[in-house]
Computed example of a mutant assay.
Amino acid sequence: MSRTVSERSIHAHEATLTSRVRRALEGVRVPGPAPLAGAALLCLLIGLLFLALQVRAIFSAQLQQEYVGLVLEAVERADTARAAASSLQDTPAADSQHRAAYREARIELSARLAALHALIASSPMAAPVLPAAVLSPATALGEASSALDSAYAYWRTERDRTSADVRARILSVSHTLIALSAIVFGVLITALGMYAKRNRQLLGISNEFEQASLHDPMTGLPNRRKLFSALEEAANALEGGSARIAVLYIDLDGFKRVNDTHGHRIGDEFLIAVSRRFHQVMRGSDLVARIGGDEFALLVREFSSDGELAAIAQRIIACVHETDAQMGLSIVRASVGIASFPDRVSDYWRLVAAADDTMYTVKRNGKNGYAFASASA
């Protein structure tokens, strides 16, 4: 029996798998969410800074509004005092009572104008002050009236300006908040999409590794690990009664001569070709695995009789013979050992070993045939 394996071919297939995994990993290393999060954080910081400046400007504008309101109230009070003084200005000189009221009205107007002047002079923003002449109690009422009209017009304009500024800044803040919300939402959606894509890629890589760990790299057939996993599942699925499972252990007689005579490349081509034939002739419920070198095993999950197993063994032997004839070698044949559970082997874990031992019996008895394991196996 030959157990020679072409290390060069296996290494080539392993290199191919490694290359595929490396490319997959490189595919995973797409720009992750970190750069996107950094850019979004920068935008958020800029937006928050802009919001802070706008809020500060809004508070400042509101304070200006309040100050403008105070000035306009002072102007209205001064204008009320002016109107009172104007109503008493034409009082006859003989009417001492009205003349006294006029003087008090002028003093009140002068006090109101002085208070207005002091308020305007302490304004946090540049503003025209009242003419010094109107602050005197002896100033003409016409001059006071003109000064008050100018002050009222100016501060009313300031009130309208500050109100418009506050409205504009509030609108700007609302637009900024909408933009920041859109950025945050977009970043979250994009990050979720990137993580989902990365998870799909990692899942694909995981599946590829699992596939590689359960299959022979050269022939693509399930390997020993996959065979024993399927064997355990099949044994656990048995419901008793007449249900049975079987393993056919296959060794290629004369395969070492192929490697020695024709080289490992031809040997590898033969293994690949015969593996394809095995896969073509086996039933859908069965599983054929490459154990190693030139040895294979076929798990039969259900069968009705030993005759059915014998027919399967004959098809396997025919596959080897046909492959050998197709490649013009006239060297390779097959020896097949058959073991079944639970009638011939009481422990399904020993099925492969029992079939292997039976295969050796076939080889000792002339090769190129099959045999059943004894009931005591």
Rank of each mutant, 00 (worst) to 15 (best):
S2E: 07
R3Y: 08
S9D: 12
A12T: 03
A15C: 12
T18H: 03
R20W: 01
R20G: 03
R20D: 04
R23H: 13
G27H: 10
G27Y: 08
P31E: 02
G32D: 07
P33Y: 03
P35V: 01
A39M: 03
L41W: 00
L42T: 07
L44Q: 03
G47W: 07
L48V: 08
L48F: 10
V55L: 10
R56V: 05
I58D: 11
F59E: 15
A61F: 09
A74W: 02
R77K: 14
D79T: 14
T80R: 14
A81T: 10
A83H: 01
A85T: 08
S86Q: 12
T91Q: 11
A94M: 06
A94I: 09
D95Y: 00
S96R: 14
H98E: 11
Y102D: 03
Y102M: 06
R106K: 14
R106H: 10
I107P: 01
E108F: 01
L109Q: 09
S110C: 10
L116E: 09
L119C: 07
P128I: 12
L130A: 08
P131S: 13
A132D: 15
A133V: 15
L141H: 09
G142D: 12
S150G: 02
S150I: 06
Y154S: 08
R156W: 12
R159V: 08
R161N: 11
A164E: 13
A164H: 13
R167F: 14
S172W: 01
H175E: 12
L180A: 09
L188M: 13
T190W: 04
L192A: 12
Y195H: 06
A196L: 06
K197T: 13
R198D: 10
N199K: 09
Q201T: 05
G204H: 12
I205A: 02
S206R: 11
E208S: 12
G220E: 03
P222Y: 02
F228D: 08
E232M: 05
A235Y: 09
N236C: 00
R244Q: 14
L252R: 04
L252H: 08
L252T: 07
F255V: 05
F255A: 02
R257G: 04
N259C: 11
E269C: 08
L271V: 01
R276I: 09
Q280I: 11
Q280E: 15
M282R: 15
S285K: 07
L287N: 00
V288Y: 03
G292K: 00
G293N: 06
E302R: 13
D306A: 13
D306R: 10
A310D: 03
A313H: 04
I317K: 11
I317R: 15
A318N: 14
C319T: 11
D324C: 07
Q326H: 12
S330L: 11
I331E: 06
R333T: 15
R333M: 05
S335C: 06
R344W: 00
V345P: 05
V345A: 08
S346Q: 15
V352I: 08
V352A: 09
A353P: 02
A355F: 03
D357W: 05
V362M: 06
N365S: 14
K367G: 06
N368H: 10
S374T: 14
S374D: 15
S376F: 13
